[in-house]
Design a protein around this nucleic acid. Sequence first.
DNA 1: CGGTATCCCTAAGGATACTG
DNA 2: CAGTATCCTTAGGGATACCG
Lengths: 139, 139
Amino acid sequence: MTDQATFREPDVFERKCMSRDILHGLTTRWSVLAIAALAEGDFRFNALRRRVDGVSERMLSQTLQGLERDGFVSRTVLQTIPPRVEYSLTDLGHRLAGPVLNLVETVHGSVDEVVAARARYDADRSGDRQSVDGVPASD
Amino acid sequence: MTDQATFREPDVFERKCMSRDILHGLTTRWSVLAIAALAEGDFRFNALRRRVDGVSERMLSQTLQGLERDGFVSRTVLQTIPPRVEYSLTDLGHRLAGPVLNLVETVHGSVDEVVAARARYDADRSGDRQSVDGVPASD
DNA sequence: CGGTATCCCTAAGGATACTG
DNA sequence: CAGTATCCTTAGGGATACCG
């Protein structure tokens, strides 16, 4: 199977790679949130839209289509009046949701540090600029 | 503290939230790859650019600035001729890199399934469209 | 080498109106 | 309710040229 390289790291670093493409579809503004929401349970379209605050109908629809196409989300149409459509994570979707939720939670737990870092950074740029290092290199 | 809701989940779902903003800066096309690369070790600008295949100078620079601002990456300027700039993950950056690498690896391990899912999806849309469910609802 | 500045293009995204 | 379709704006991103 490992017929191409050392392989300890994923080949995401190559430009024409599927993983990169999939990752990109997974890390759009709304797909992360949609997955995180669906990890909590199934949602109907408008309920999901309410949960993922700020998403437009168009973008939610588009995002869900992308996730469905990639096999992360399943879409179940109930033939009722009015129509109901239930969205839920597939098994594959749940596997992806793990890392995604983990990332979201880690980010959430780092908010204070990031805010502080931004403040420091922005302060540095408006004030003077100190030299960080003075070590010469031989190369 | 929990004056707004149940709160068991992060507040990423609210539109004007820091976590969402940070997450967005973290899930751009190149920041994920940059973090994954830097998780392997320190890199100088052009080395990193070679590692993250396909990124332009401008976008790498911009991405790194964003990551530095948020405190994920530290930038060390060596005052040499020619100049050297070393990029590395901060502690915070390493904490974030965990989930990120996890996601990348999970994606990498799911490529086959996603490819299959896409094939199925695309085939369905070009062919006929079967009804998925017929259960009526009472609500 | 390690960038910034500029220009330009494409894709992501929002608002609204409309349909099954 | 659950979307499409349309239109338009903004942000992401590539190429190139140039500077410290």
